[in-house]
Computed example of a mutant assay.
Amino acid sequence: MGTTGTGTDPVAGERRQLINVAYRLLGSLTEAEDAVQDAYARWYALPRSRRQEIRSPGAWLSTVTGRICLDVLGSARARRERYVGTWLPEPLPDPREWDHRQAADPAEQLVLDESVAMAFLVVLESMTPAERVAFVLHDVFRYPFAEIAAVLDRTPAACKQLASSARRRAGATRTTGPAGPTGAGRGDAVPGDVVRGVKAAWESRDIPALVDLLDPAAVMTADGGGMVGTALHPIEGGACIARYMVAIADRAPGLELLERTVNGAPGLVAHRAGAVLTVAAFDVTHHRVTRIWVVRNPEKLRPWVRDDQPAVPGPDATLR
């Protein structure tokens, strides 16, 4: 459940893997980094003699990180019941694309694959904490159930049942996990072309063009966290979404859209005066957008702020 580090420190090479696991478990890069930092703190708090006795430091760190994430997921359910509006996962930029000044060391980056697609992460939110841990560790990272049992403090057979239950939950939605296609490219669509068309139609305030690009049953879900203005409830129907998007364009002078990778798939980033205000992820099927996830909560946009940019602005009412 992890690889042995290199050099004199046996845990030197584990951080990237741990962050990758923790982000998929928690849907938040900030919380994932905190969980991994906590795991490392516990490792270094062990007496040197105890650390030397551990045959696989990577497996030890993976187990501890999994347990920390399980605890965080349990408390998060209560916090999200008090969340203003809809809670969405924290969107991820591609650092090589977003900030060309970065060295983009692959050893420090999250793997942007289908298991970080917004559609997939949203499905994970429907699972219980134990189901999510069992499903992500087994189906995404291929950990054996014997090792997952150490994280969940259950038998391997019980963990297998949890993963199976999680698969049924995922199968009850339109989106499937890494074993099948995700929303970012099903059918014969080219997601980048569709998202580029949405950008052009939005910039020209072309409602008919937007309606043509949106599935009639499309849904837009926004997350402002109660900190910025946004739609508190999902907007349903391509025509309604198109009118809403054009209304935003009319009320937000100076707002610019950039085509950027969001969680490994084509997306759009809205900024004004150099500050990122919104990150949007898309689910494209057969040349039409079926889902849009709009993240405006400033606390979730911190990974999108470059050193040469102003900080993400605080509460406003721009995009109600």
Rank of each mutant, 00 (worst) to 15 (best):
D113K: 07
P208S: 00
D105F: 12
G224I: 01
A252N: 07
W98T: 10
A184H: 01
I207H: 03
A273W: 09
L70G: 04
I207R: 07
Y44W: 15
F135N: 12
M127A: 07
I235K: 08
D223E: 03
A218D: 10
G85Y: 09
G314I: 09
P313D: 06
D193R: 14
L152Y: 09
A252G: 00
P313Q: 10
A265M: 02
A218N: 10
L162I: 08
R291H: 14
R306V: 04
V195Q: 00
V279W: 00
M118C: 00
L110M: 11
L232E: 13
D71W: 13
Y40F: 15
P106W: 02
P266C: 09
M118R: 02
L214P: 08
V195S: 09
W60H: 14
R167D: 04
V269M: 12
A107K: 14
A242F: 08
K160D: 07
Y23T: 13
R288P: 02
L210F: 05
I292V: 14
I207S: 01
G180T: 13
L268F: 07
Q52G: 11
Y40Q: 07
D223Q: 02
D153Y: 11
V276M: 01
T155A: 13
R50I: 13
G267R: 00
L152D: 05
H271I: 01
T65I: 09
T128I: 14
V289E: 01
P208K: 01
R260C: 15
L268C: 07
P156Y: 08
V219P: 02
I292A: 04
T261N: 00
T278R: 15
R80Q: 14
